Every structure is written in structure tokens, then in C-alpha cells.
Amino acid sequence: MVSKPGRGLHGQAVEELGRRIMRGDYPPGTVVDPAKFQTELGVSQTVVREALRVLAAKGLLESRQKRGTTIRPRADWNLLDSDLLRWQGSSAPTDGFLGDLAEVRAIVEPAGARLAASRRTPSDLETLRQALDAMAAAGTDADAMVEADLAFHRALLDAAHNELLSRMEVVIEAGLRVRDRIVHGARHFADSIPVHQELLDAVEAGDPDAAVAAVESLLAQATDDLAAVQARKDKEDRAADVATDPPPKETP
């Protein structure tokens, strides 16, 4: 098992096994073999047992006498768990996963912006300004841009001053992190700072309708950016296929 800075063996085992399950390496109903995991991961029985216990708490596994430990149906998984969201989006997210996240963002963020425009405090506005300044300072640093963008949207939900809505940040962060990683990693995206500024201005002015409109513009831009990246990738894949196709045989 490759060592990851900042994580003990237990945390690394949870990460590795969780990613495998989310990837579909072990279909629902599969009986898992803890002894095999010990060998593959190079860890102790105790580490594997504790990792399986954590994954069971997330709804991925269940243990029964005489049946052993099995992968539970996907319908039983705690898909809003922050780790599950991160694992599902960290490798090669499917169109279905990206579509689901986009729909949830379209439901949550406009409502959050509307409340933020009515309830924001001077402290909330300062946090939003700092995040926007960090976005501007990031330049072409994709990692810095991603973190600043996440900070802005997290601050926006917090400015709504609704504890339950703030907890939705795990979903928003998953959607944003996946989108930003794809788009900023490809360095093919529209400048989102102006529309973020529009959103901040609307929240500061206490204009709920303008805040909602600004968020909807942001979401539309996010969709367009992803579509542009995917279109470019498809074009490059087609060009690569043509380049590797064998030349046609000459007819005598």
C-alpha cells in the first residue's frame, strides 16, 4: 500500500478499500476476504478489521454470521458522506455522478444565496471578499484556484445562517472540487471572477433576486466549462484513434 502523508495505516486502509468499492471493484453481494486485504495492503489484521468497521458505518459493508462480510447494495450506501463523495469524484467521475451533483447544486446554492443576501453579516462579507481576492491572486495556479473557489462557496452557504444548509457544503464541495479539478486542470475555462464579484455585490447589497441570478449564471458557466473540456477531450481522442489506425491496404 502506497504511503500517504498525514494518514496512518488505518486511514490509508480505509481510503484504499473505500475507493475500490466505489470504483466497482467488488460488486454488491461480493463476500470480501479480510485475510486477502491484509496481504494486499501489507497491514495487520487489526488495521483491516478497523477499516472494515469504518466502511460498514458508511453503509458499504455488512457482516453476518455464516455469511461473512459482504458489499451492500448501492441503495444502502451513505452517498452524502463526505468520504464517499470524495472517493466517487476523485478518479474518473461518471456523467451520471456529475449530473447528480449539478442538479443538487442548482437546488441548494440559489436558495443559499437568497438567504445570504438577507442575513449576511459584516464578517460574512469579509470572508467572501477574502476568498474572492484569493481567487484573483491564484492566477494560473489550478490548486490555489480550486481552494479559493471552495472557500467562496462555503462562505456563501455559511452566510445563510442555516445550520442544516451549511452542512450541505459536503455535496457542494464534492461537486466543485470535481468540476474545478477537471476544468482548471485542463486550463480551459471562462474567467469566473466577474460573476463571483456580481454575486458578492448582490449579497452585500441585500438583493436576493440578484444573488440568485448571479448563482444561476455561475452554475451555467460551470456546465459550459465542463462541456468545453469534454468536447476538446473527445476531439483529441478521435485524433489519437485516427493516428493509430493502420493504413488501408492497397488494392492490386
Rank of each mutant, 00 (worst) to 15 (best):
126 E>S: 05
52 L>C: 03
119 R>I: 06
65 Q>R: 09
100 D>I: 05
100 D>K: 07
123 S>G: 08
82 S>V: 14
78 N>F: 04
77 W>I: 03
81 D>Y: 05
70 T>R: 02
63 S>R: 09
79 L>V: 12
126 E>K: 05
67 R>P: 00
120 R>L: 03
85 L>R: 04
124 D>E: 06
72 R>D: 00
54 V>H: 08
64 R>S: 05
109 E>K: 09
124 D>F: 08
126 E>T: 06
115 L>H: 08
107 I>H: 14
67 R>E: 05
114 R>S: 15
57 A>P: 00
128 L>T: 03
116 A>D: 13
126 E>G: 08
57 A>D: 14
90 S>L: 10
93 P>D: 11
68 G>F: 03
97 F>K: 10
70 T>M: 01
91 S>P: 00
57 A>K: 11
99 G>D: 13
87 W>M: 12
81 D>N: 11
70 T>Y: 00
116 A>K: 06
88 Q>Y: 06
52 L>H: 03
54 V>A: 12
78 N>I: 01
57 A>V: 02
83 D>H: 12
58 K>C: 05
103 E>P: 01
89 G>S: 11
103 E>K: 13
108 V>G: 08
91 S>D: 15
57 A>Y: 06
70 T>Q: 01
124 D>S: 15
53 R>I: 02
93 P>V: 11
111 A>E: 14
52 L>M: 09
70 T>G: 00
118 S>A: 15
98 L>H: 10
68 G>Y: 03
60 L>K: 02
93 P>G: 13
99 G>A: 10
69 T>C: 00
98 L>P: 00
59 G>Q: 01
88 Q>D: 09
71 I>K: 00
82 S>K: 12
102 A>T: 10
85 L>S: 07
106 A>M: 08
55 L>K: 04
58 K>P: 01
103 E>C: 06
115 L>W: 12
90 S>E: 14
76 D>E: 09
99 G>S: 11
63 S>L: 01
83 D>C: 05
72 R>Q: 08
66 K>Y: 07
70 T>A: 01
58 K>H: 09
92 A>I: 11
69 T>V: 08
111 A>M: 15
87 W>D: 04
109 E>T: 10
115 L>M: 15
53 R>C: 01
71 I>N: 00
107 I>V: 15
63 S>K: 05
88 Q>G: 15
91 S>C: 05
94 T>P: 02
125 L>E: 10
108 V>K: 07
78 N>Q: 13
72 R>C: 05
64 R>T: 04
117 A>G: 13
109 E>L: 15
96 G>V: 11
68 G>M: 05
97 F>R: 12
73 P>A: 02
105 R>W: 07
60 L>S: 02
106 A>K: 09
95 D>S: 13
122 P>Y: 03
78 N>M: 07
96 G>F: 12
74 R>F: 01
84 L>V: 06
61 L>F: 03
111 A>C: 11
57 A>L: 07
98 L>C: 13
84 L>K: 01
86 R>V: 05
85 L>P: 00
104 V>P: 00
117 A>E: 14
78 N>A: 10
65 Q>K: 06
63 S>I: 00
